[in-house]
């Protein structure tokens, strides 16, 4: 059994059939680029993995565990999801980070705020970002914070859904190289050429 599996997925969305009998297997540490044309359900696919979209038919498994209402929490705790919208919780950045690591499941990570300083620099964010309100940040800044949060959560599977939209070219290359360098199972949803020729397996439908 592969690390991540979609088996015979059927999904209707607004009366439109998006998947009918879709199959996909992804191995551990594999890096995959979903580059299907718009409207084919790329985001729905990754949301199915997180249990936010439930297929009408078919089965999904993550690390040998079939996704159901009972297993959804443990599966979510294996996945880091960063989306284009980067909906980080509202509030002052440093408090938001602290709050996330106070969630029961994340407490074992022993988070210290001092690690953030280096990460802000890596992501080209000013140090005073920590004291700012999430609402006052730009979309690109929020995305990078969500990436830092994702890296710090240290989970096995990363889903990066259109994360390069708010970034300039140099920063884009720098961040994509950084992220792809990790030994994680990485699923990328994007149309950006920046991911091409970097050894990702391209999946389209």
């Amino acid at each position: 059994m592969a690390y991540l599996e979609f088996r015979n997925i059927h999904l209707k969305f607004d009366e439109r059939l998006i998947f009918s009998g879709f199959n996909l297997a992804i191995e551990q540490s594999e890096k995959v680029l979903f580059c299907a044309p718009s409207g084919r359900g790329k985001t729905s696919l990754v949301k199915m993995l997180l249990g936010f979209v439930v297929p009408d038919q078919g089965e999904i498994s993550v690390a040998g565990v079939t996704l159901t209402g009972e297993t959804v929490n443990s599966i979510r705790s294996k996945i880091t999801y960063v989306s284009q919208d980067a909906d980080i919780p509202k509030g002052i950045v440093s408090e938001v980070f602290a709050a996330v690591f106070k969630f029961q499941v994340n407490r074992r990570l022993n988070y210290q705020e001092t690690v953030l300083s280096d990460w802000l620099e890596t992501m080209s964010l000013p140090q005073d970002t920590l004291g700012k309100n999430v609402d006052a940040l730009s979309g690109g800044e929020r995305q990078r914070l969500a990436l830092i949060l994702g890296i710090l959560l240290d989970r096995d599977i990363w889903i990066l859904d259109e994360i390069t939209t708010g970034l300039d070219h140099t920063l884009k290359i720098q961040i994509v190289e950084l992220l792809l360098g990790y030994d994680k199972t990485i699923l990328v949803v994007s149309h950006d050429d920046i991911y091409l020729n970097r050894g990702l397996r391209e999946v389209s439908w």
Binding site: L50, R76, S77, T80, S83, I88, P89, F103, V105, L153
Partner: peptide
Amino acid sequence: EREYHYRLALSAN
């Protein structure tokens, strides 16, 4: 909803 789902994805119960 998106923020709520994101919180769930961060493993908040």
